[in-house]
Amino acid sequence: MEELIMNLIEAFKELSYFGVILALTFEFIPGEVVLPLVGYWVYQGDMNLWLAVLAGSVGGVTGPLTLYAIGRYGGRPVVLKFGKYFFVREKELDAADRFFAKYGASVAFLGRFIPVVRTAISFPCGIAKMNIWQFSIYTFFAMVPITFLYIYLGYKLGPKWEQVGTIAEKYLLPFAIVALAGLILYIWLKSSSERKRKIAG
Results as ranks from 00 to 15, higher is better:
residue 94 D to F: 09
residue 96 A to D: 00
residue 96 A to H: 10
residue 96 A to P: 02
residue 98 R to N: 08
residue 98 R to K: 15
residue 100 F to D: 01
residue 100 F to A: 12
residue 101 A to N: 13
residue 102 K to L: 11
residue 104 G to N: 03
residue 106 S to R: 04
residue 108 A to L: 02
residue 110 L to T: 11
residue 111 G to L: 09
residue 112 R to G: 14
residue 116 V to W: 11
residue 116 V to S: 11
residue 117 V to C: 04
residue 117 V to A: 11
residue 119 T to D: 05
residue 120 A to E: 02
residue 120 A to S: 02
residue 125 C to V: 09
residue 126 G to Y: 04
residue 127 I to P: 14
residue 127 I to Y: 12
residue 128 A to K: 15
residue 129 K to Q: 14
residue 131 N to W: 02
residue 133 W to E: 07
residue 135 F to G: 13
residue 136 S to F: 00
residue 136 S to G: 14
residue 137 I to R: 01
residue 138 Y to D: 07
residue 138 Y to L: 15
residue 138 Y to V: 05
residue 139 T to N: 04
residue 139 T to A: 08
residue 140 F to C: 04
residue 141 F to W: 03
residue 141 F to N: 05
residue 142 A to S: 13
residue 143 M to V: 02
residue 143 M to E: 08
residue 145 P to T: 05
residue 147 T to P: 13
residue 152 Y to A: 03
residue 152 Y to W: 13
residue 153 L to R: 04
residue 156 K to M: 10
residue 156 K to R: 15
residue 157 L to M: 14
residue 158 G to P: 07
residue 159 P to M: 01
residue 160 K to W: 04
residue 162 E to H: 10
residue 164 V to D: 01
residue 165 G to A: 12
residue 165 G to H: 00
residue 167 I to D: 00
residue 167 I to F: 10
residue 168 A to G: 00
residue 169 E to W: 02
residue 169 E to R: 14
residue 170 K to T: 15
residue 170 K to M: 10
residue 170 K to W: 14
residue 172 L to D: 02
residue 173 L to V: 12
residue 173 L to G: 00
residue 174 P to S: 13
residue 174 P to T: 10
residue 175 F to M: 06
residue 177 I to K: 01
residue 177 I to F: 05
residue 178 V to D: 00
residue 178 V to K: 00
residue 179 A to D: 02
residue 182 G to E: 05
residue 182 G to F: 00
residue 182 G to H: 01
